[in-house]
Design a binder for these strands. Structure first.
Lengths: 185, 185
DNA sequence: GTCTATAAACGGATAGAC
DNA sequence: GTCTATCCGTTTATAGAC
């Protein structure tokens, strides 16, 4: 297998393992078993585990950004919001997983320090998208937007991340969308 | 030091370590160093790490329940909600910690299976309290309660847990209270 | 690039003395 | 109850052969 494929394979498996078990819940051994190579070979691509962590976050954010851009710009704000929540739910594959951002931010205290900025950037990117969504929703009257849109955007994103966590805990998909009724006008 | 004190001491230190680093982010060694005993002595109280985990959740839930009961029943619903959020913020000691429920639910995939029910119970207990709060708020008109109170209660609790996570990530206390403006009538 | 082999530290856990 | 001593699997990481 050529280099880029193996590297990509490792990153995507690590991503899934993190979504399932968290950064402290998987090892190079788990990864090696799944990829079908030895742990030493993983160190060839990612000398330290924190190198892998940063690669995972960066890759996830890139593909996330693409997914968001693919939400048709012609939709009403409430429709976009539904689509946005739906993307999250799909990324969590039937409640077995949660969002990389949520699990890693929760583990922050036991993560290598370099992860913090990357996670802040991931959060900020999503919150900025929500700010623009809320502005559109306020113009249209399709979303209820009380007060500062930035505060609302942060609250919505926190509610979504928390919702994914509780959806898995109760194995109850609807918990991921509980925030919607509170926001629709 | 007598038995009950040492045991209590261990539980409370473990609780703090979990709030800071998560279940997979601390070891009996960390605990021993802080308590001032050897790891073997911790095994005397908690033979397996999962025994300690269950004790921590149980103890946390008990004290949590007491704290909620201490919110004066004469308050308006919106005042109670502010008090409730404030208790959470205080339990997180200036953004260094998050709630036990939030971090453990996020780590669920790498926790011993026995933790799940305890965590569901913890979530359900808080959500039930919020259901009653919302009913009071609807009667009084002091809270905005759109649609099903159970759905709203779950959304609020998820938003609060997510808010504590993001407050720590950005070291920004206000993020814990971002959900309030969306709820006050 | 991937392997074998290995290092060195850490993890949870136990036996048995005091 | 707490200790010392120890077991043994795991984990991250490196050296060097192929």
């Amino acid at each position: 297998m050529d280099t880029e494929n193996t590297r990509t394979h490792i990153v995507q498996l690590a991503q899934r393992l993190i979504q399932e078990r968290g950064y402290n819940g998987f090892s190079y051994r788990d990864l090696a078993a799944s990829v079908g190579i030895k742990t030493a070979s993983i160190h060839y691509y990612f000398p330290q585990k924190e190198d892998l962590l940063l690669a995972v976050i960066s890759d996830y954010q890139t593909r996330w950004h693409e997914a968001i851009q693919n939400i048709p710009s012609g939709l009403r704000a409430d429709e976009k919001l539904r689509a946005y929540v739906e993307i999250h739910r799909r990324a969590c594959a039937g409640n077995q997983l949660i969002c990389i951002g949520g699990i890693l931010a929760a583990e922050l205290g036991s993560l290598p320090g370099c992860a913090r900025k990357a996670l802040q950037s991931f959060y900020a990117c999503n919150e900025q998208w929500l700010v623009e969504l809320l502005e559109q929703g306020a113009r249209e009257g399709s979303l209820r937007v009380p007060g500062d849109v930035r505060v609302s955007a942060r609250a919505i994103y926190a509610a979504l991340q928390g919702g994914l966590v509780s959806a898995r805990l109760f194995d109850h998909q609807e918990r991921a969308t509980d925030l919607l009724p509170c926001l629709l006008a």
